[in-house]
Structures are given as structure tokens and as C-alpha cells.
Design a protein around this nucleic acid. Structure first.
Length: 424
RNA sequence: GUGAGCGUAGCUCAGUUGGUUAGAGUAUCAGGUUGUGGCCCUGAGGGUCAUGGGUUCAAAUCCCAUCGCUCACCCCA
């Protein structure tokens, strides 16, 4: 049996309703905040991501789906969206059309990792990028949009964590301070963290190893060493969240993995999705656009994992969607009438009713059972003898009541049916 | 890349110290008196017991290998 690639999943009809529900909410909330949807290709030149996300990151270092096309260009399936949006922003000079572009997206992403709960190789994110303003109001706004979406999905077990990384120069001087602090404690750290000491010292804070956590517990905090502007902006973000009733906590250990972040970073986690608890993460990236060859332009954005969110919804039992049903099931008593049945169905369907018929030549009993299973609101019965005299029976499934209709043609039948069913 | 656990019907799972033709629930299909649903009843189809090898008179059951899946680590959404 040919199976789907590990880490990829089919989204079957019974789950699609939950996806659509989420997508509708995403479109709605972003529309409320006047964000415009953007769609970019599923693959890009590899250099976009290696330059944008950072050569040293795990995403670029070991997780990208990279291949060569026939022109021998290195291409990569997008592992995240920010670099693509920024590329598009630069390519189409969006910054010249208007100073601020508020963009959002829903899209598949690809990372080659070992799958586990809440982690796939093809997964889906929605998110936004607000490009063109350094106002911390936007930092707050995107956190609020994310939170409102999760709220609308009825998720309860949520935690918003925020931090500020400061501007790069402030962060660099903090790194020195941290390095000094840890230097004589190196022997207490795990092997991985000793590696991080060399490569990316901030990530020691991410460690889940108890001895590591112990070592950094009393280390100097980044938040105490950031520049004044970042501090001021951070205060604005906090105030905005408080004013708009978003509960949050400051997590000085929150260091996002991608190179381009500065100032505000945030994450929303759920206690209901297993080990991969981050539903959503993002922050500010004021240097990225210039770094990718665009005009110096500040930006801020986030990405949210749809599979993780749906998993949280499922585990919290937060979503109750209306049962699917159909309007009319047309039953034929004589199998010969299939063409007439199809014809009537078509007329009703053109009138926007959801109509189903039998294609398998089932008995009347079986057709009734099928109608019941599909939760048909009405059944239209077409019999051999009555049909000759243009008589039809409309059955109201809920009550069992049967109404006899008499019509000279299908159009007349249609209007009769509309009359009758609108009464219910 | 590392570690652990699990593979029996479409799905969820029983299957005794190894012992006849591998079961249940659910789902599917059909029937339950002329042409009418739900509840109920009856019946049917559906299995290379993941695959390959080994031990044994005898293997779903014990052993080995392979494959697949799941969870966790790393990292991230």
C-alpha cells in the first residue's frame, strides 16, 4: 500500500469542518484589524531562507526541504513565512504604495524533522506581518489578534509569554555579561548547553535539563540590560495588553530561535497539546528587510501552528459545530425514474438547496435509511403511478408528516417545495 | 540524528501456561410481507494476525531481523 509521506497527513472530510471553522475565524479577525491576505509560492530560492532565517539556525541547518531544479538552482519548500512575505514586499515595492502594510496568510510549511504530537513535516500556519512601522502598538496588536483568534476558538488553557531581546547591540553586550557569569559554571552545564555557550548562548535558557535550569536560574536577565528604547517600547506593549484584557507573563527566558528577532518576542502556549506546547510565536524584526536587500523598514509578525491549535481544541473539547445535514433527499420508488429524479434535483440545487439522490439503485427502505443518515430535513418521494399524474409526496422527516404536491412541471414543483419547506 | 513503546477486520480492541476453522463492539451492505427513516431484530461481506526467518508435533502467542506507526529528546508552530 502506498502511504502518505511520514510527517504528512490527509485531512479527511470529517476534520475539514474544523479547519474551515478555524480559517473563517482567522479571516474574520484579521479582517477586523484590516490586515490583507497575501499568498506566496510554496517554494523559493534557498538563499532567501538561509540569509533571512540565519545559517546557524536549526531550521536552515538541518530542517529544510531543499532540492535542485533542472536549471540547477537550489530551491527550498518554505519552512516559515516571514522571509517569503518580506521577499514579496521588497520585490513589489509594497512600501512605496503605502508606508504601512498589514499582511496575513494561511499556508502550508515544510520542515524535515522527526514527527511527534503537534509536529509534522508538512504543517500549516496562519500568521501576519505588519511591515513599515516601529510603533510598539503594532507589537501589541499582533499579540492581540493572535489571542482573539484563540479566544474565539474557545481555548481556555492559554498562557501568553512576552519578552524583549533589545536591539542587537544591547543584546551583544548582554551576551558578554552572561558569558562572564557562566564561564566558571561551565562544568555544571550539560554537554548541549556547553555547545550553546559557544554558538548561541541565549538558548541555554531553553534547556529542559534540570541542572541547566538550576545554573541559569540566578543569571543576569536580558530584560535588565536592554537599551532604553526597547525598554520603553516593552512598557507600551505591556500596557496595551493590560488595557485590552490580555493576561500575560514576562518570561525572561523566552528567546526565539530565529536570528532576525529583536525587541519584542512573544509566545502563546497551551497546556493541552503535549510536549510541543507553543501554539503561536513571533516578534519584531527591524533589520530583516534591509538584510534581504530592501529599504530599511521595521516589521513585526507572528506565526501560529494550525495543527497544534486544532489539537488543543480537540483536547479541550472547545469546539461544537452544527451537525451537517442536507435539505432534501429525493427517493424514487421505481428505479426507472432516475433521470427524472436527477432533473428535479438539479432544479432544486440551482435554487441553492442541498439535495442528494440515490445512485446505487437501493430499495425504498434503504433510500429512507440513507436520507435519515444524511439528516435530510425533507424527503421527496416520487412514485410510479403518482408520477404519471404529476403527484409527489413531500415528507417532513422530523415529524413524519407527508404532504401531497401536485405540479404540472418541475419548475412548478420547485416553487411548491419552496413554499412548503419555508413553513418549517 | 538519539531514545522508548506499539503493530490482530475500515475504526476501537479481546484472544488463557503455545492447542480445533482467529473473535466482539462499531461501521458498511441486505432483509424484517404490496412503496417509507430513527429504536429494535436477523443475516452477509470484510483478516497474508505488519513482513521475513527461526524454535516446536503445533505459533496471533516464544526468539531474531526488517519495515511501519506513536511518543519523547534536539529544535520549533
Amino acid at each position: 500500500m502506498i502511504k502518505s509521506i511520514p510527517g504528512t497527513k490527509d485531512i479527511l472530510p470529517e476534520e475539514i469542518i474544523y479547519w474551515k471553522n478555524l480559517e473563517n475565524i482567522v479571516h474574520q479577525i484579521f479582517s477586523n484589524f484590516n490586515y490583507k491576505e497575501i499568498r506566496t509560492p510554496i517554494f523559493e530560492e534557498t538563499i532567501l531562507f538561509s540569509r533571512g532565517i540565519g545559517e546557524e539556525t536549526d531550521i536552515v541547518g538541518k530542517e529544510m526541504y531543499t532540492f535542485f531544479d533542472k536549471g540547477n538552482t537550489s530551491l527550498t519548500l518554505k519552512p516559515e513565512m516571514t522571509a517569503s512575505v518580506v521577499r514579496s514586499f521588497i520585490e513589489h515595492s509594497l512600501g512605496k504604495l503605502q508606508p504601512l502594510n498589514k499582511l496575513y496568510y494561511i499556508s502550508p510549511m515544510f520542515r524535515q524533522e522527526r514527527p511527534q504530537a503537534g509536529r509534522q513535516r508538512q504543517f500549516h500556519q496562519f500568521g501576519c506581518e505588519a511591515i513599515g512601522s516601529n510603533s510598539p502598538i503594532l507589537d501589541g496588536e499582533i499579540i492581540i489578534t493572535a489571542y482573539r483568534i484563540l479566544q474565539k476558538l474557545n481555548l481556555k488553557d492559554l498562557k501568553v509569554k512576552i519578552n524583549s531581546l533589545g536591539i542587537p547591540s544591547a543584546r551583544e553586550s548582554y551576551k558578554k555579561i552572561l558569558r562572564e557569569y557562566l564561564r566558571n559554571k561551565l562544568h555544571l552545564l550539560s554537554e548541549d548547553s556547553r555547545k550553546r555557550f559557544e554558538n548561541n548562548i541565549l538558548r541555554i535558557f531553553d534547556s529542559k535539563i534540570e541542572s541547566d535550569i538550576d545554573v541559569v536560574k540566578d543569571a543576569p536577565k536580558l530584560i535588565d540590560y536592554i537599551d532604553d528604547e526597547s525598554k520603553k517600547d516593552f512598557e507600551v506593549v505591556k500596557e496595551l495588553l493590560t488595557n485590552n484584557e490580555i493576561p500575560f507573563e514576562i518570561d525572561s527566558k523566552l528567546v526565539r530561535g530565529l536570528d532576525y528577532y529583536c525587541k519584542t518576542t512573544f509566545e502563546i502556549i497551551s497546556g493541552k497539546v503535549g510536549a510541543q506546547s507553543a501554539l503561536c510565536g513571533g516578534g519584531r524584526y527591524d533589520l530583516l528587510i534591509e538584510q534581504l536587500g530592501g529599504p530599511p523598514t521595521p516589521g513585526v509578525g507572528f506565526a501560529a501552528g494550525i495543527e497544534r491549535i486544532l489539537l488543543a481544541c480537540k483536547n479541550e473539547n472547545s469546539t461544537t459545530l452544527p451537525e451537517e445535514s442536507i435539505d432534501i433527499f429525493i427517493i424514487r420508488i421505481d428505479d426507472e425514474l432516475i433521470k427524472e429524479v436527477f432533473n428535479i434535483a438539479d432544479i432544486l440545487r440551482r435554487g441553492s438547496l442541498k439535495v442528494e439522490i440515490d445512485y446505487l439503485g437501493k430499495s425504498v427502505k434503504s433510500q429512507m435509511r440513507e436520507a435519515n443518515k444524511l439528516k435530510a430535513k425533507f424527503v421527496l418521494l416520487i412514485g410510479g403511478t403518482e408520477y404519471k399524474y404529476q403527484k409527489y409526496i413531500l415528507k417532513v422527516m422530523k415529524t413524519g408528516e407527508q404532504i401531497e404536491l401536485s405540479a404540472n412541471n418541475f419548475l412548478e414543483l420547485q416553487s411548491l417545495i419552496y413554499q412548503k419547506i419555508s413553513a418549517y
